[in-house]
Design a protein around this nucleic acid. Structure first.
Lengths: 143, 143
DNA sequence: CTGATATGGTCAGTCTTGCTGACCAGTTCG
DNA sequence: CGAACTGGTCAGCAAGACTGACCATATCAG
């Protein structure tokens, strides 16, 4: 009988993580953040990134990225500053409120990893990580 | 030095599979099928399923499921027949056109698995499968 | 057996998040 | 310098999800 395809199992795992992180963030009071905003915000750091670059990384159009950044800015999670090196461009930088959320998200991710390791055991967990990282070479043509 | 979280890696893998399957199906001429329709149709079989049940499995509301089924029906991929055991309910059944797509999708999935196995080797591939299946117990509270 | 409650499904309306196409303002390069 | 490229916005549209209200049939408690 058919075993479920690994792709489906990965989907289940990925959805679980996203849900857990979103719930944790919302439970801490940051409830003005949508899934897409979160996905975009996850890629932001102190250095700043251009909207176009962000769009490429997230595999969405720059228009979509721009809209998400605008929402994030309105809600105080990011700031947009002019790019000193190109007057056309503006850099999207994480703001303090955004940093707080990133900390929360990372904490929840670590918690999930601990739970998974407890469930699978150290050895199978690191085999999983290893295989997933190796697969990335085939499955992630972009990065 | 942060390694990417397994959840992210799973997301990448799952997205890759979905994309490959969608491309293969579209390339074969079934281009009137959207991702969400595909995800819903993947859960259909000969026995028929109620919209409500379908919605639960896919973790969407019954309204969303209902809308997707309507599109699938219009495009000839499924049929809706009355449930002989409950006059309130109707069963969503896969139609011939839908069966063709399912065959294509499964073929593409098998191809991907072969490629992954070639890349990882038999041993790591089965470790991956094993770990993912075990994780499902923790990460998939519904099924 | 009958009224209350639960269940399967639809209708109506809204929101988020994608997309394309057109366009503007700076940059870069021949 | 002018042509072509690049970063970004504006405008308009569609898919897919949601909530809330509602109807018809089933089921269950008394």
């Amino acid at each position: 009988m058919d075993r479920p395809h690994p792709g489906l199992l990965m989907f289940i795992g990925a959805r679980y993580v996203e849900q857990r992180v979103a719930d944790a963030v919302a439970a801490a009071g940051y409830d003005d953040i949508t899934p897409a905003m979160g996905r975009a915000a996850a890629r932001l750091g102190e250095d700043g990134i251009r909207v176009t670059e962000l769009a490429e990384q997230a595999r969405i159009t720059k228009q979509s990225a721009s809209a998400l950044v605008e929402l994030l800015e309105k809600a105080g999670y990011v700031e947009r500053v002019p790019d000193p090196r190109d007057a056309r461009a503006r850099l999207v930088v994480i703001a303090e409120r955004g940093r707080e959320v990133q900390r929360l998200a990372r904490r929840e991710e670590r918690a999930i990893e601990r739970e998974w390791t407890r469930h699978l055991g150290e050895e199978r967990m690191s085999a999983l990580r290893d295989a997933l990282e190796a697969l990335r070479e085939v499955a992630d043509p972009y990065r």
